[in-house]
């Protein structure tokens, strides 16, 4: 049995240590907000937080997580930064099809937690690995800045 701390709760899961966290989240624990995109850490749709840092869960073996805190899109709104990012996303209607957006929000929250007032190149460095096939990049950038402004306020 592997013990995982997901969104503040301990989950005991009976899975092989090399199973990617994404499979455990979606298929074992039932948290389906985190999406499967490419499966090779190239698109960002599966992004979650491990101790507050953005990590691609499709490539992360559960056996390597240990006691570190896992946060998914289902609970990120409970943090002040997460709540501000979600509000900015709604205010600017960032989402089009939405498939990549839980990953986008997770990456954006991790960025703002580390860099409260990011410039364009900070946003590039943190968000370039999150791909959106609808092309919502312009609104994502605006929403991150809006959330950063709200944070400063």
């Amino acid at each position: 049995m592997t013990s995982l701390r997901i969104n503040g709760q301990i989950h005991e899961v009976d899975v092989p240590g090399d199973m990617p966290l994404l499979w455990v989240l979606r298929d074992v624990v039932g948290l389906t907000g985190t999406k499967f995109g490419c499966g090779i850490a190239q698109c960002g749709a599966c992004t979650v937080h491990i101790d507050g840092k953005a990590v691609r869960s499709c490539f992360l073996p559960v056996g390597e997580i240990g006691n570190r805190a896992i946060t998914t899109i289902e609970a990120v709104g409970e943090t002040p930064t997460g709540a501000k990012v979600q509000k900015a996303w709604l205010d600017l209607e960032v989402v089009q099809c939405g498939y990549c957006q839980s990953g986008q929000i997770m990456s954006a929250v991790a960025l703002l937690a580390a860099t409260p007032n990011p410039d364009d190149s900070d946003i590039d460095a943190a968000m370039a690995g999150n791909i959106c096939r609808c092309g919502t990049y312009v609104r994502i950038r605006a929403a991150i800045k809006k959330a950063a402004g709200a944070q400063q306020a």
């Binding site: 850490a41 990590v55 691609r56 490539f59 073996p61």
Partner: peptide, 14 residues
């Protein structure tokens, strides 16, 4: 960067 990190110490897998 998403796998190798900016530090080179992977946040995903050793």
């Amino acid at each position: 960067a998403s796998c190798h990190g900016w530090t080179g110490v992977s946040p995903v897998t050793h």
